[in-house]
Protein backbone atom coordinates (compact mmCIF):
# COMPACT_ATOMS: atom_id res chain seq x y z
CA UNK A 1 0.00 0.00 0.00
CA UNK A 2 1.18 3.48 -0.84
CA UNK A 3 2.59 5.50 2.02
CA UNK A 4 2.05 9.26 1.72
CA UNK A 5 4.44 11.67 3.38
CA UNK A 6 1.46 13.55 4.73
CA UNK A 7 -2.27 13.19 4.99
CA UNK A 8 -4.27 16.30 5.81
CA UNK A 9 -7.71 15.75 7.26
CA UNK A 10 -9.96 18.63 6.34
CA UNK A 11 -9.92 21.21 3.55
CA UNK A 12 -10.77 24.45 5.31
CA UNK A 13 -8.29 27.34 5.35
CA UNK A 14 -5.92 25.44 7.68
CA UNK A 15 -5.97 22.27 5.57
CA UNK A 16 -5.71 24.09 2.25
CA UNK A 17 -2.77 26.18 3.46
CA UNK A 18 -1.04 23.09 4.86
CA UNK A 19 -1.53 21.46 1.47
CA UNK A 20 -0.16 24.51 -0.33
CA UNK A 21 2.99 24.58 1.78
CA UNK A 22 3.45 20.81 1.77
CA UNK A 23 3.14 20.66 -2.02
CA UNK A 24 5.69 23.44 -2.38
CA UNK A 25 8.04 21.49 -0.09
CA UNK A 26 7.48 18.65 -2.56
CA UNK A 27 5.94 16.39 0.02
CA UNK A 28 3.69 13.62 -1.24
CA UNK A 29 0.42 14.84 0.20
CA UNK A 30 -3.21 13.74 0.25
CA UNK A 31 -6.13 15.83 1.51
CA UNK A 32 -9.28 14.09 2.69
CA UNK A 33 -12.39 16.17 3.22
CA UNK A 34 -16.09 16.18 2.47
CA UNK A 35 -16.51 19.92 2.29
CA UNK A 36 -14.14 22.15 0.44
CA UNK A 37 -13.38 25.24 2.49
CA UNK A 38 -14.81 23.75 5.68
CA UNK A 39 -16.96 26.41 7.28
CA UNK A 40 -15.26 29.22 5.31
CA UNK A 41 -17.74 29.14 2.37
CA UNK A 42 -20.55 29.73 4.86
CA UNK A 43 -19.14 33.16 5.59
CA UNK A 44 -21.33 35.46 3.53
CA UNK A 45 -18.72 38.21 3.63
CA UNK A 46 -15.21 38.25 5.01
CA UNK A 47 -13.95 41.70 5.94
CA UNK A 48 -10.81 40.81 7.85
CA UNK A 49 -8.73 38.74 5.50
CA UNK A 50 -5.72 40.92 4.54
CA UNK A 51 -5.59 41.86 0.85
CA UNK A 52 -9.36 41.92 0.41
CA UNK A 53 -11.56 44.72 1.62
CA UNK A 54 -14.45 42.37 1.24
CA UNK A 55 -14.71 38.90 -0.20
CA UNK A 56 -17.29 36.14 0.09
CA UNK A 57 -16.24 32.95 1.87
CA UNK A 58 -17.06 30.90 -1.19
CA UNK A 59 -14.91 33.09 -3.42
CA UNK A 60 -12.00 32.88 -1.00
CA UNK A 61 -12.45 29.11 -0.87
CA UNK A 62 -12.34 28.90 -4.65
CA UNK A 63 -9.17 31.00 -4.76
CA UNK A 64 -7.42 28.83 -2.16
CA UNK A 65 -8.56 25.69 -3.94
CA UNK A 66 -7.37 26.96 -7.34
CA UNK A 67 -3.95 27.60 -5.87
CA UNK A 68 -3.49 24.04 -4.62
CA UNK A 69 -5.17 22.51 -7.67
CA UNK A 70 -2.44 24.13 -9.76
CA UNK A 71 0.06 22.17 -7.67
CA UNK A 72 -1.77 18.92 -8.41
CA UNK A 73 -2.59 18.16 -4.80
CA UNK A 74 -4.76 15.07 -4.50
CA UNK A 75 -8.09 15.67 -2.70
CA UNK A 76 -10.53 12.91 -1.83
CA UNK A 77 -14.16 13.54 -0.96
CA UNK A 78 -14.54 10.91 1.76
CA UNK A 79 -15.61 10.84 5.38
CA UNK A 80 -12.75 9.98 7.75
CA UNK A 81 -13.89 7.52 10.38
CA UNK A 82 -10.68 6.87 12.33
CA UNK A 83 -6.98 7.60 12.66
CA UNK A 84 -4.74 4.96 14.17
CA UNK A 85 -1.07 4.84 15.01
CA UNK A 86 0.72 1.88 13.44
CA UNK A 87 4.35 0.91 13.90
CA UNK A 88 5.94 3.31 11.44
CA UNK A 89 2.94 5.04 9.96
CA UNK A 90 -0.57 6.24 10.62
CA UNK A 91 -3.60 4.53 9.19
CA UNK A 92 -6.50 6.71 8.19
CA UNK A 93 -9.75 4.96 7.51
CA UNK A 94 -12.62 6.48 5.60
CA UNK A 95 -16.06 4.98 5.04
CA UNK A 96 -14.74 2.97 2.11
CA UNK A 97 -10.95 3.18 1.97
CA UNK A 98 -7.85 3.06 4.08
CA UNK A 99 -4.72 5.20 3.64
CA UNK A 100 -1.23 5.25 5.16
CA UNK A 101 1.00 8.20 5.83
CA UNK A 102 4.15 9.13 7.71
CA UNK A 103 2.62 12.27 9.19
CA UNK A 104 -0.86 13.62 9.75
CA UNK A 105 -2.19 17.14 10.06
CA UNK A 106 -5.65 17.32 11.58
CA UNK A 107 -7.56 20.35 10.33
CA UNK A 108 -11.04 18.93 10.69
CA UNK A 109 -12.42 22.09 12.27
CA UNK A 110 -15.67 22.20 14.11
CA UNK A 111 -19.16 20.98 13.55
CA UNK A 112 -22.09 23.24 14.12
CA UNK A 113 -23.88 22.68 17.36
CA UNK A 114 -27.53 21.74 17.25
CA UNK A 115 -30.23 22.87 19.61
CA UNK A 116 -31.02 19.20 20.32
CA UNK A 117 -34.73 19.80 20.27
CA UNK A 118 -37.53 17.56 19.10
CA UNK A 119 -38.40 18.08 15.39
CA UNK A 120 -35.02 19.69 14.68
CA UNK A 121 -34.09 16.90 12.28
CA UNK A 122 -37.59 16.67 10.82
CA UNK A 123 -37.66 20.36 9.90
CA UNK A 124 -34.13 20.40 8.45
CA UNK A 125 -34.39 22.40 5.22
CA UNK A 126 -38.04 22.98 6.09
CA UNK A 127 -37.62 25.88 8.41
CA UNK A 128 -34.52 24.74 10.31
CA UNK A 129 -31.22 25.86 8.80
CA UNK A 130 -27.54 25.77 9.65
CA UNK A 131 -26.23 27.66 6.60
CA UNK A 132 -27.58 31.17 6.16
CA UNK A 133 -25.40 31.72 3.09
CA UNK A 134 -27.01 28.73 1.37
CA UNK A 135 -30.63 29.28 2.30
CA UNK A 136 -31.30 32.97 2.98
CA UNK A 137 -32.72 33.68 -0.46
CA UNK A 138 -35.71 31.42 0.21
CA UNK A 139 -36.92 33.82 2.88
CA UNK A 140 -37.80 36.86 0.83
CA UNK A 141 -40.40 38.89 2.76
CA UNK A 142 -40.68 36.14 5.37
CA UNK A 143 -40.19 36.19 9.12
CA UNK A 144 -37.07 34.48 10.41
CA UNK A 145 -34.97 34.20 13.53
CA UNK A 146 -31.32 33.52 14.23
CA UNK A 147 -30.32 31.78 17.46
CA UNK A 148 -26.92 32.72 18.82
CA UNK A 149 -24.78 35.71 19.77
CA UNK A 150 -21.41 35.23 18.09
CA UNK A 151 -19.94 36.41 14.81
CA UNK A 152 -21.71 33.81 12.70
CA UNK A 153 -25.07 34.70 14.27
CA UNK A 154 -24.48 38.39 13.54
CA UNK A 155 -23.45 37.67 9.94
CA UNK A 156 -26.47 35.43 9.43
CA UNK A 157 -28.79 38.14 10.78
CA UNK A 158 -27.29 40.74 8.44
CA UNK A 159 -27.54 38.48 5.45
CA UNK A 160 -31.13 37.51 6.24
CA UNK A 161 -31.94 41.19 6.73
CA UNK A 162 -31.37 41.58 2.99
CA UNK A 163 -34.23 39.20 2.20
CA UNK A 164 -36.62 38.72 5.08
CA UNK A 165 -39.07 41.35 6.28
CA UNK A 166 -38.27 40.66 9.92
CA UNK A 167 -35.29 39.05 11.62
CA UNK A 168 -35.20 38.19 15.30
CA UNK A 169 -31.91 37.43 16.98
CA UNK A 170 -32.48 35.16 19.93
CA UNK A 171 -29.65 34.99 22.42
CA UNK A 172 -29.41 33.42 25.85
CA UNK A 173 -27.32 36.31 27.23
CA UNK A 174 -27.36 40.06 26.77
CA UNK A 175 -23.77 40.99 26.10
CA UNK A 176 -22.62 40.16 22.61
CA UNK A 177 -19.02 40.01 23.73
CA UNK A 178 -18.08 37.10 21.46
CA UNK A 179 -18.91 39.06 18.34
CA UNK A 180 -16.83 41.66 16.57
CA UNK A 181 -17.92 45.17 17.61
CA UNK A 182 -18.19 46.49 14.05
CA UNK A 183 -20.43 43.59 13.13
CA UNK A 184 -22.70 44.11 16.15
CA UNK A 185 -23.03 47.81 15.28
CA UNK A 186 -24.14 46.93 11.77
CA UNK A 187 -26.75 44.53 13.13
CA UNK A 188 -28.04 47.05 15.64
CA UNK A 189 -28.37 49.68 12.91
CA UNK A 190 -30.51 47.42 10.78
CA UNK A 191 -34.16 48.27 11.41
CA UNK A 192 -35.42 44.87 10.33
CA UNK A 193 -33.45 43.13 13.05
CA UNK A 194 -34.76 42.83 16.59
CA UNK A 195 -32.92 41.28 19.54
CA UNK A 196 -34.59 39.02 22.05
CA UNK A 197 -32.17 38.57 24.95
CA UNK A 198 -31.97 36.18 27.90
CA UNK A 199 -33.97 33.37 26.36
CA UNK A 200 -33.48 29.95 24.82
CA UNK A 201 -35.54 28.22 22.18
CA UNK A 202 -37.35 25.35 23.88
CA UNK A 203 -39.79 24.02 21.28
CA UNK A 204 -40.06 23.77 17.51
CA UNK A 205 -43.66 23.69 16.37
CA UNK A 206 -45.19 22.88 13.01
CA UNK A 207 -46.82 20.19 10.89
CA UNK A 208 -44.65 19.53 7.83
CA UNK A 209 -42.68 22.77 8.09
CA UNK A 210 -41.60 24.88 11.01
CA UNK A 211 -44.39 27.30 11.86
CA UNK A 212 -43.48 28.70 15.23
CA UNK A 213 -41.12 28.37 18.15
CA UNK A 214 -41.54 28.56 21.89
CA UNK A 215 -39.04 30.46 24.01
CA UNK A 216 -37.98 29.80 27.58
CA UNK A 217 -39.88 32.96 28.52
CA UNK A 218 -43.01 31.03 27.44
CA UNK A 219 -43.48 33.42 24.55
CA UNK A 220 -44.48 31.89 21.23
CA UNK A 221 -43.06 33.32 18.04
CA UNK A 222 -44.57 32.67 14.59
CA UNK A 223 -41.73 32.09 12.10
CA UNK A 224 -41.01 30.82 8.63
CA UNK A 225 -37.40 29.93 9.31
CA UNK A 226 -34.94 29.49 12.16
CA UNK A 227 -31.21 29.73 11.55
CA UNK A 228 -29.12 28.02 14.19
CA UNK A 229 -25.76 29.63 14.99
CA UNK A 230 -25.13 28.52 18.55
CA UNK A 231 -21.45 27.73 18.18
CA UNK A 232 -19.57 24.67 17.15
CA UNK A 233 -17.25 22.00 18.54
CA UNK A 234 -14.67 19.63 17.08
CA UNK A 235 -15.87 16.18 16.12
CA UNK A 236 -13.66 14.07 18.40
CA UNK A 237 -15.11 10.76 17.32
CA UNK A 238 -12.49 10.19 14.60
CA UNK A 239 -9.58 10.69 17.02
CA UNK A 240 -10.86 8.18 19.57
CA UNK A 241 -8.13 5.64 18.91
CA UNK A 242 -5.38 8.25 19.30
CA UNK A 243 -5.85 9.42 22.88
CA UNK A 244 -4.87 12.97 22.06
CA UNK A 245 -4.50 15.57 24.75
CA UNK A 246 -7.26 18.15 24.79
CA UNK A 247 -7.85 21.51 26.34
CA UNK A 248 -11.55 21.60 26.93
CA UNK A 249 -12.79 20.12 23.66
CA UNK A 250 -9.94 21.29 21.48
CA UNK A 251 -6.73 19.51 20.52
CA UNK A 252 -3.78 20.85 22.48
CA UNK A 253 -0.90 21.99 20.27
CA UNK A 254 2.42 23.76 20.85
CA UNK A 255 3.84 26.56 18.73
CA UNK A 256 5.01 24.05 16.12
CA UNK A 257 1.41 22.79 15.88
CA UNK A 258 2.52 19.45 17.35
CA UNK A 259 0.02 17.44 19.37
CA UNK A 260 1.22 15.18 22.17
CA UNK A 261 1.51 12.32 19.67
CA UNK A 262 4.69 12.39 17.62
CA UNK A 263 3.88 12.70 13.93
CA UNK A 264 0.41 14.13 14.45
CA UNK A 265 -0.09 17.84 14.05
CA UNK A 266 -3.22 19.96 14.21
CA UNK A 267 -4.16 23.39 12.90
CA UNK A 268 -7.16 25.69 12.70
CA UNK A 269 -10.41 25.62 14.62
CA UNK A 270 -9.87 22.10 15.93
CA UNK A 271 -6.97 23.29 18.12
CA UNK A 272 -6.86 25.16 21.41
CA UNK A 273 -5.76 28.39 19.72
CA UNK A 274 -7.18 31.57 21.26
CA UNK A 275 -8.61 33.03 18.02
CA UNK A 276 -10.51 31.03 15.44
CA UNK A 277 -10.41 32.93 12.18
CA UNK A 278 -9.54 32.20 8.55
CA UNK A 279 -6.25 34.06 8.81
CA UNK A 280 -5.12 32.28 11.99
CA UNK A 281 -6.11 28.90 10.53
CA UNK A 282 -3.97 29.66 7.47
CA UNK A 283 -1.03 30.63 9.65
CA UNK A 284 -1.27 27.49 11.73
CA UNK A 285 -1.65 25.37 8.61
CA UNK A 286 1.57 26.80 7.22
CA UNK A 287 3.46 26.16 10.45
CA UNK A 288 2.14 22.59 10.66
CA UNK A 289 3.28 21.84 7.11
CA UNK A 290 6.70 23.31 7.88
CA UNK A 291 7.01 21.17 11.02
CA UNK A 292 6.10 18.08 9.00
CA UNK A 293 8.68 19.00 6.39
CA UNK A 294 11.41 19.40 9.02
CA UNK A 295 10.64 16.03 10.60
CA UNK A 296 10.64 14.26 7.27
CA UNK A 297 13.96 15.92 6.35
CA UNK A 298 15.50 14.85 9.66
CA UNK A 299 14.40 11.26 9.14
CA UNK A 300 15.97 11.23 5.68
CA UNK A 301 19.26 12.57 7.01
CA UNK A 302 19.45 9.95 9.69
Amino acid sequence: MKIYDLIIIGAGPAGLTSALYAARYRLDVLVISTILGGTMPEAHKVWNFPSYNEISGIELTKKMYEQIKNLNVEIKNEIVTSIEKKKETFEIKTQKNSYQSKKVIITSGREKAKLNLKNEEKFLGKGIHYCATCDSTFYKNKIVAVVGGGNSAMSAALLLGGYAKKVYVIYRGTELKNAEKMLVEQVKNNKKIEFIFNVNVVELIGKDNLESIKLSSDKKLALDGLFIEVGSLPNKEIFKKLKLEYEKDFIKVNNKQETDIKGIFAAGDVTNNPLKQIITACGEGAIAAYSVYLEIQQNLER
Binding site: L36, T61, C134
Partner: peptide
Protein backbone atom coordinates in the same frame (compact mmCIF):
# COMPACT_ATOMS: atom_id res chain seq x y z
CA UNK B 1 -28.55 24.13 -6.39
CA UNK B 2 -26.92 27.56 -6.35
CA UNK B 3 -23.48 29.03 -6.99
CA UNK B 4 -23.15 30.37 -3.45
CA UNK B 5 -23.88 27.05 -1.78
CA UNK B 6 -20.74 25.00 -1.20
CA UNK B 7 -22.58 21.84 -0.12
CA UNK B 8 -24.37 22.07 -3.50
CA UNK B 9 -21.07 22.32 -5.32
CA UNK B 10 -19.82 19.23 -3.44
CA UNK B 11 -22.95 17.20 -4.19
CA UNK B 12 -23.38 18.13 -7.87
CA UNK B 13 -20.34 16.26 -9.25
CA UNK B 14 -21.36 13.15 -7.29
Amino acid sequence: WAEWCMPCLMLSPI
